[in-house]
């Protein structure tokens, strides 16, 4: 038998006191919160999305022949000149992208761990849940991370490139990569993953940043689908063109 208290222990409180202890800083509150981490993911995702849009536009220059494509590749290194030194602008972009990737990945990792912990027991009765794009966010993200590593080793550093990597001749390098079956497979699978990831990610980022509401929902979904389609089609058109001999 336990005995309940016979007298009240609490101080007189005609008004509720809030926050007597020192409060953590806003940065800390932001990073500790799931909503804050999701905001980091949304912003870094949007940065990467912007980059992808620029990237696909550059890629499509391949259809205008090696001269224009290689010149575009060269310009990437001279952009910002003469204010900036050779390649500086490119490095600034790279550092920014790296920060976005790290922010995105760290938040995703921490949130995923938390999410898995929050739901330790699965239901015995299984049924399909949510849309395909939603369910593949985690695996899609990991696939894309691995792809980026391969992609850089293949076409930026040339480390794993086959057929004689030559800096400054991106056109030939691209044609080499897409002349192998596995190069095509890896690339096309990754680009499909990009599509799915962007499809849910863009709409989701809008919600996280508070831009979503009932009236805007259809427009946001249409934009997400449009972006996903344009990016995937744009990227995939290059290996398809190489395979079909349109680009050689």
């Amino acid at each position: 038998m336990t005995l309940g208290p016979s007298v009240g222990l609490m101080a007189l409180a005609t008004r509720t006191e809030r926050r007597t202890e020192p409060q953590p800083s806003m940065t800390r509150i932001f990073w500790r919160s799931t909503v804050g981490k999701k905001t980091v993911m949304a912003l870094s995702g949007l940065i990467m999305l912007g980059y992808l849009v620029a990237h696909v536009m550059g890629n499509l220059k391949i259809f205008f022949g090696p001269g224009e494509f290689n010149a575009y590749g060269h310009w990437l290194r001279t952009m910002g000149a003469p204010v900036l030194h050779h390649s500086w602008a490119l490095w600034i972009v790279r550092v920014g992208l790296l920060a976005a990737v790290i922010g995105h990945a760290v938040s995703a990792y921490q949130l995923s761990r938390r999410d898995i912990k929050a739901r330790p027991t699965a239901y015995v009765h299984k049924r399909p849940r949510a849309s395909y794009a939603t369910r593949t966010m985690r695996w899609g993200g990991i696939i894309l991370a691995l792809f980026i590593v391969w992609h850089i080793l293949d076409l930026t550093t040339g480390t794993v490139h086959v057929g004689g990597f030559e800096e400054g001749r991106p056109y030939q390098n691209v044609v080499d990569t897409f002349s192998t079956w596995y190069g095509n497979v890896i690339y096309i699978v990754a680009m499909l993953a990009v599509g799915l990831h962007v499809r849910h990610g863009f709409w989701s980022a809008a919600q996280t940043l508070g831009a979503g509401n009932a009236r805007r929902d259809r427009a946001l979904k249409a934009m997400a689908n449009g972006l996903a389609l344009v990016l995937t089609a744009g990227f995939v058109s290059v290996p398809v063109a190489v395979m079909t001999g349109v680009v050689s």
């Binding site: 038998m1 005995l3 309940g4 208290p5």
Partner: peptide, 8 residues
């Protein structure tokens, strides 16, 4: 199932 007493 514990039976407790509370006073007031």
């Amino acid at each position: 199932g514990e039976i407790s007493t509370y006073f007031a």
